[in-house]
C-alpha cells in the first residue's frame, strides 16, 4: 500500500513539474494557461490523494482538499483568461485562427 501511494505521489509531482515548466516555456498567455491549468490540476490531485493513501487517517481531509483544487482551479484560470482577453493581450505569431470577432458581433446583436 505504501509503495502504491509513493508511486501515485511521484506521478503527480512529475505532472506538477511539467506544468511549471510549460508555464515558463510556452509562447503566449493563453498557451501558458493551458499548461498551468491541466497539468497542475491533475498533479496536485494525484499528490494529495497519494499522501492520503500513505496515511489512511488523513484520507478524508486530503480528498476534500483535492476536490477543492479540482473544482476551483479551472474557475480561477478561466477568470484570468477572460481578464487577459478583455485587457487586450494578443495571440502569439504561430496562431492560425481567431474567431473573437464573430463572438463580439454576436454580443452586439443580443
Amino acid at each position: 500500500m505504501d509503495v502504491f501511494g509513493v508511486a501515485i505521489t511521484g506521478v503527480g509531482i512529475i505532472f506538477l513539474f511539467l506544468g511549471n515548466f510549460g508555464v515558463l516555456r510556452l509562447p503566449d498567455v493563453y498557451n501558458r494557461i493551458q499548461a498551468g491549468t491541466k497539468c497542475t490540476t491533475l498533479g496536485a490531485f494525484l499528490t494529495i490523494v497519494g499522501v492520503g493513501i500513505m496515511e489512511p487517517a488523513w484520507l478524508w481531509k486530503a480528498l476534500l482538499i483535492a476536490l477543492f483544487v479540482l473544482v476551483t482551479n479551472p474557475i480561477s484560470s478561466h477568470a484570468i483568461a477572460r481578464a487577459s482577453r478583455k485587457s487586450g493581450v494578443s495571440l502569439c505569431d504561430r496562431s492560425v485562427v481567431d474567431k473573437t470577432k464573430d463572438f463580439e458581433e454576436f454580443r452586439e446583436k443580443t
Binding site: T9, L16, I33, G43, A44
Partner: peptide, 23 residues
C-alpha cells in the same frame, strides 16, 4: 511581459504550494 502572464504564474505556483504543504 504582461500582467496576466504574472497572474498565471502565481496561479500555477499556488497550486504547487498547496501540494507541497500536504507533502
Amino acid at each position: 511581459p504582461t500582467a496576466p502572464d504574472r497572474a498565471v504564474a502565481v496561479d500555477t505556483m499556488t497550486t504547487t504550494v498547496v501540494a507541497l504543504l500536504v507533502l
